[in-house]
Amino acid sequence: VPVGPALVYRELDCDDPETEQAALVAVDYINNHVLRGYKHTLNQIDKVKVWPRRPMGEVFELEIDTLETTCHVLDPTPLANCTVRPQMQHAVEGDCDFRLLKQDGQFTVLFAKCDSSPDSAEDVRKVCPQCPLLAPLNDTRVVHAVDAALTAFNAQSNGSYFRLVEVSRAQLTPLPPSTYVEFAVAATDCVAAEVTDPAKCNLLAEKQYGFCKATLTEKVGGEDVAVTCTVFQTQPLIPQPQPDGTEAVGPTVVADPGVTVPEASPDLPAAALVVGPVVV
């Protein structure tokens, strides 16, 4: 590389419309690639540097803060209609580094890295002294509440048997002793009323996801469970490009390339924002 003048980055205001445009592309990228949990929305742009890129274009180096919304990533509700989770529900923030290429007026994500963390207990206590904090997803009471709620939901269902996809958040309340959980489910090829061995049920090729909120309340001599699930419209199969250039549609093909749904992972922290592979 011939020695030339040092690259100089362009100073841009963090609230400049061009910076905001880049940040919104970054947030869109997060929500299309996040593997679990909730959609995030832009809260603040921390830093921006715009580097010239040879032979053409510019690279935006961006640091942004996001906040968790109440929309699950599998929920098709547009981000603009999603509510930011209030502090009293124990908010979660995302801290992201992005590099985006701007060429011909279009942004492309080159690099993305996000970490998420829940608000501190002190902050939650300041706004709501009695509000429950986020609980570990592998807490036995959480696991039991999800199991009881899903069993109750399937028992009332006259359609497909739904299987757990992930536990998304949980809170424990001491008085009365109760466990609040939110979890994602997916329809299987079994009929709920006829299931004898859930292990033999398979997820539908045309994925149908749902999102449930449940409260399990402990009582003397038993427990009460209240569960509400929203089942989203089916996600049609999208032809996937094959190595030989053909396109295939079949049950082995991932239906939604943007969102990969892993098996429930109780060892993940309560507020993991996992961003998938980056586009380079």
């Binding site: 205001d13 929305t41 830093k47 921006v48």
Partner: peptide, 27 residues
């Protein structure tokens, strides 16, 4: 700023290029 004593200097807007505005709340 160094100015002549008899020249009035208009107070310009305070520039805070970064970080940008907080849209919801800071945690």
């Amino acid at each position: 700023k160094v100015v002549q004593p008899d020249v009035a200097v208009a107070a310009g807007p305070v520039v805070h290029p970064c970080p940008g505005r907080i849209r919801h709340f800071k945690i």
